[in-house]
């Protein structure tokens, strides 16, 4: 797991960024904190000897997806929460459900962490995580799930195209 000091600093950055992301009043700030969080997680992957995943994390999440988020926020002018603050709290049952599912997640995580303690701590070091090895695994062992993911993304893309073309036709007629 690399240097424990590096790990602790990064963990601090990631947690603070995540909390700030949720609590920021300004949506652009939220997006920026999320970028910081993603970058910290990318460095976690580097510490775990997974450089490929780390770079993909930065390119796809910090680079592409968050830029699109920023884009939408800026185009809609939705930086500030105006007049919707009351609604943000949500219904009573939603609050209860949120707290309950949060605790459930935390509990599951705790059990997994305690079960995992003492064994398999160094497995990351022994795995060959070079891009070539990753590609071989992806295309030989996990071919089917990989192709399924591709079809899922294609479906999403076609859906977007259908929606935008429908709108265009309506505007013309």
């Amino acid at each position: 797991m690399g240097n424990p000091i590096v790990f602790l600093i990064l963990a601090g950055v990631a947690i603070v960024a995540a909390i700030m992301m949720v609590t920021s009043r300004n949506a652009v700030y939220s997006a920026l904190w999320l970028v910081l969080n993603f970058s910290a997680i990318a460095i976690f992957y580097l510490l775990l000897n997974a450089p490929f995943i780390a770079m993909v994390q930065i390119t796809v999440y910090a680079g592409a997806i968050m830029v699109l988020f920023l884009f939408v926020i800026m185009l809609l002018g939705a930086e500030q929460l105006r007049g919707v603050t009351a609604a943000i709290g949500g219904e009573r049952w939603q609050q209860v459900l949120a707290v309950f599912s949060g605790l459930l997640l935390l509990g599951t995580m705790g059990i997994l962490v305690f079960q995992g303690m003492g064994d398999g701590g160094d497995t990351a070091v022994t795995i060959n995580s070079s891009p070539a090895a990753l590609g071989v695994r992806l295309f030989e062992v996990y071919t089917f799930p990989f192709e399924l993911t591709g079809i899922l993304l294609l479906a999403a893309m076609i859906g977007v195209a259908i929606f935008s073309f429908k709108k265009k036709k309506k505007e013309e007629s």
Binding site: L32, M55, T59, A62, G63, A64, M74
Partner: peptide, 25 residues
């Protein structure tokens, strides 16, 4: 000797967008 050097270039390039979009905003 970084075995993901090209991806690193792509990753940093994609972060380069932030400077411009944030300056504008």
């Amino acid at each position: 000797g970084i075995n993901v050097g090209v991806l690193y270039v792509l990753a940093i390039t994609s972060l380069g967008v932030y400077g411009i979009v944030l300056a504008g905003w």
